[in-house]
Write a protein that binds this DNA or RNA. Sequence first.
DNA 1: GCTTTGACGTATG
DNA 2: TCATACGCCAAAG
Length: 117
Amino acid sequence: MTQPADYARIYAAIAVIPRGRVASYGEIALRAGLPRRARLVGYALRHTPDGLTLPWHRVLCSDGHIAFPVGSVSFEEQRQRLVTEGVIVRNGRVALPRFGMHHDLDRELWGAAPPCE
DNA sequence: GCTTTGACGTATG
DNA sequence: TCATACGCCAAAG
């Protein structure tokens, strides 16, 4: 069932994530029209074609933690890239309610300033 | 073709 | 918050 077009949509969905924002594997899968296929997103990222550059560091697990093992080179690189974009990473985790794409709705409700902190 | 392996996710205790 | 279990499914061997 999985076709080349599926991967294209996965890569496209990732490319759309705004700077300073993050999304989960599950969200990407959903946006790509592939519900419950978060693992496929992981596979797609692992095998990103040469020449295609993506904001892969903006993809996290559903609870906001970095998928790589803590301390691994990839982990550090992802954390660094996120911090560089202004995303707060604490203990290998990101506060999805604040940095997730879904947070856009809150802006309309609360304005520029977040309700807390 | 069957088994194992994941850059995952949800449920449950 | 941590752990364990199970669902998921394309690739790899």
